[in-house]
Write a protein that binds this DNA or RNA. Structure first.
Lengths: 131, 131
DNA sequence: CAGGATCCGCCCAGATACTG
DNA sequence: CAGTATCTGGGCGGATCCTG
């Protein structure tokens, strides 16, 4: 490969690997962020999450949670009882992730109107173009 | 439907809409973040970006840039010359986005080893399970 | 209740060829 | 140089059915 010169994604490290990609693959995921933020408000059970996230399929919830557990962001606790009860909660690591996510949330809230306005302007300009 | 109670994605607004989704659809995108950060370092031409991002197809670069321009995050400037020259640069809005993105970057850099370790632990535990 | 397993459609992204 | 246009497949995610 010898990718010499300007490989410039987000502070790539010496290994030539990009740490941000690993994170973004999780953040970029449609559901992960939602779930992390939700769990930031407290422990939840599977079904609670299923209802709360709304729109997520059972399958996706399972897969997303598995990935989060694997990454050490979420703890899964099985209570031996009938009916079974499984609790999900953020790990310490997961809670630290909450900070930048909230920053992003605030940016989104602050600038959503700007983005919408920009889109409207852009689309109208494009429409005028075609006319 | 009547999803009254706990619909809890990221500070949903009165409209029932989630501003974060709009942002995440962009941030989550594999390339957008890379390009925004790249442009954070200065103006670039199409081909420069194509080389720098590395791995991105021409098509995806075009589509990504279009979306960013539409959202008012990036300016596209066509210089009437031969050969043609098109410059891309962040808008003021785009530069404000840089801040939370860098926060995320820093989180990623700081905790990448934690995540890797967690994954290793998880995978080894799973392997031991099967044995 | 908390998933696992399977099937399947659809969309997205890559590759390729062409153009102002 | 900076794109557009078209085809194509692989994968992601939903729906459905089943289990401890």
């Amino acid at each position: 490969m010898a990718v010499t010169h300007t490989r410039v994604p987000f502070t790539p490290d010496a290994d030539g690997d990009c740490p941000v990609r690993e994170v973004l693959d999780r953040v970029g995921d449609k559901w992960s962020v939602l779930i992390v933020v939700l769990l930031g408000r407290g422990t939840h059970r599977f079904t609670e999450l299923h209802r709360a996230v709304e729109g997520i399929s059972q399958r996706m919830l399972t897969l997303t949670l598995r990935a989060l557990v694997r990454d050490g962001l979420v703890n899964r606790t099985v209570h031996a009882s009938v009916p079974p009860r499984v609790d999900y909660e953020l790990t310490a690591l997961g809670r630290t992730l909450l900070v930048p996510l909230v920053a992003l949330d605030e940016w989104a809230s602050t600038h959503r109107d700007d983005i919408r306005a920009a889109r409207r302007r852009h689309d109208e300009a494009a429409a005028a173009e075609r006319a």
